[in-house]
Each structure stands twice: as C-alpha cells, then as structure tokens.
C-alpha cells in the first residue's frame, strides 16, 4: 500500500480532542464519516454518556499533554439524562477555561457547541473553523520544538 499525504500537514495541523456523547453527538460525528466529509486526522474523539460528566481537569491534562484544543460536542435539548445538560456542560467549560488560564494557556483552547445525531456538516465545519483558529493561536506544546 502506498500512503499519500494530501491533507493538512501533520506537523502543523492542530491536535483537537473532541468529547462526544454516546447517544447524540457521536452518531453525528459518525455520520460525517459515513458521508465521507473530511477534517484533519489530528482530530480525535472520546465518547462519554453525557458531556456534563467531563472533568475540567481532563481538558487541562489534554492540553498539557499535547492537544492544542478540546472541543466539547454537547447534546442540545435532546440529552436523555439531564434536562439542564447544556447549562452543566457550559459550567464545565467555564471551569476548564479557568484552569487553563491559571496554567498559562489561552482559554480559547476549549470550545463547546451542540452537535446532534445528524449534525455531520456542522461538526465538520466546527472542526475546520476550530482548526484554523487554533492554528492562529499556535501550538500549545510549549516544551516541544
């Protein structure tokens, strides 16, 4: 097999960690794949039951370890667990931003948007937009060359 690199350059494309939800946003991200929409392979997803369960410290950890940004693909109104899911997730995000700021990272390194089970295109667009804004921000990996 010959592997060809035609996408964004590996070295410079920002690494994005996405937190998705098993029932709602992860299927939306799957749909982007089934529809063969493209975003950078430096985007990687961890799926959870509900984004209200994200520890802000995970976000800081991800950035410290080398991700350039964390994107929370939250449920909209559809969350089957928590009616105030969006509010809670926003709270997680605020806390994460505080943690990031304290540690000397830009708060823009975490972002959140509602992604539902058919939001293939919005998700892809979010990834493109977020990639380019993170690229402007520069890499988070301070220690690495």
């Amino acid at each position: 097999m010959t592997a060809t690199v035609t996408g964004e350059s590996q070295a410079t494309a920002p690494r994005i960690l996405v937190f998705s939800t098993n029932n709602i946003s992860d299927p939306g991200i799957d749909l982007a794949g089934s529809s063969h929409m493209h975003y950078s392979p430096t985007v990687m997803v961890i799926s959870l039951p509900c984004t209200s369960g994200i520890r802000p410290s995970w976000i800081l950890y991800a950035i410290q370890q080398g991700f350039d940004g964390v994107f929370i693909a939250a449920d909209g109104e559809e969350c089957a667990y928590l009616p105030d899911c969006a509010e809670r997730t926003a709270g997680v995000m605020t806390q994460a931003q505080e943690l990031l700021s304290e540690a000397g990272y830009e708060p823009q390194r975490v972002r959140m948007a509602a992604v539902c089970s058919v939001c293939a295109e919005p998700f892809t667009n979010y990834m493109h937009e977020y990639s380019s804004s993170l690229a402007q921000l520069g890499p988070s990996r301070k220690a690495t060359a």
Binding site: N23, G76, E77, E78, C116, S117, V118
Partner: peptide
C-alpha cells in the same frame, strides 16, 4: 413543541 431532533430521539 420542544424542537428536539427527531433522529436523536428515535435512533436510541
């Protein structure tokens, strides 16, 4: 009337 997404409700 909640404007939630039909797919998100149906697929599970």
């Amino acid at each position: 009337p909640t404007l939630d997404c039909a797919s998100c409700i149906s697929t599970p």
